[in-house]
């Protein structure tokens, strides 16, 4: 299992692995929004939590189709499915690798982008915390979507159509934490709900993902 994690991370960092694409996308988004909306600090501060969360979501989406598609094409997925490792574990590890190579970097750069978007000072901690709690759910849900579409040619667009609606609860609670934090309001409830969704998704979705992978390999 550890070997799989190491392999997936290594592949992500090697040439053509796509590491950094999500980050670059996130950065571009944070540059484009002020250019479109105007430089007014109060407006930007108001929309910053939402923009940052939507940006993280879309950046996450970019690399989802790589989770299984490459392994499917080169036959690794067949071999992993017949190897002495549970497929549920394989999909969990793959989601973890996706989170480590996409989610964590997004979390780490988010304060810098918050600066670009004039995010109010009290919100930075909540931004980091909410993304840290929410991005694992994005990876796990995305892994499920990738598992559903793995056998399809040109499944990328369908993948977005399937996954984005599933991201709604995470987005709502995540952005709510940040915007309440920015206004100095209590954030306990949305934070707990955000963590709850992540916990539920991490615990249950790998079973669904493994099930649909088996169907797709048939």
């Amino acid at each position: 299992m550890i070997a799989l994690l190491i392999r997936d991370m290594r592949l992500a960092f090697r040439a053509g692995g796509g590491f950094g694409l999500g980050l670059a996308f996130f950065l571009i988004l944070a540059v484009l929004v002020p250019l479109g909306v105007g430089p007014d600090r109060t407006t930007l501060a108001l929309i910053a939590p939402g923009i940052l969360w939507v940006g993280a979501l879309l950046a996450c989406l970019l690399s989802l189709d790589r989770i299984f598609a490459l392994d499917y094409e080169d036959g690794s997925l067949d071999l992993l499915a017949t190897a002495p490792v549970p497929l549920e574990g394989v999909v969990s590890i793959k989601a973890l690798a996706h989170w480590l190579t996409t989610g964590v970097p997004l979390v780490l750069v988010s304060p810098v982008l918050g600066l670009l978007l004039s995010l109010p000072v009290p919100a930075y901690g909540w931004l980091l915390l909410s993304l840290m709690l929410g991005t694992p759910a994005l990876s796990v849900i995305g892994t499920f979507g990738a598992a559903l579409t793995v056998g399809l040619k040109r499944g990328g667009l369908l993948l977005s159509l399937l996954v984005l609606p599933l991201y709604i609860p995470t987005l709502v609670f995540g952005a709510e934490v940040v915007s309440r934090g920015a206004q100095g309001l209590a954030v306990g409830t949305p934070l707990a709900l955000l963590a709850g969704i992540t916990a539920g998704a991490v615990a249950l979705l790998p079973f669904a993902s493994a099930y649909v992978i088996r169907i797709n390999l048939r």
Binding site: P169, V172, F173, V212, R218
Partner: peptide, 28 residues
Amino acid sequence: DTGADLTAVLCLVGSVFAVLSRYAANFW
């Protein structure tokens, strides 16, 4: 048959998230 299986799982998972979204929208 593959389509039936995959969409059935999607419907199951989607239902959970649809309910969550309903509560999220209420909350929001």
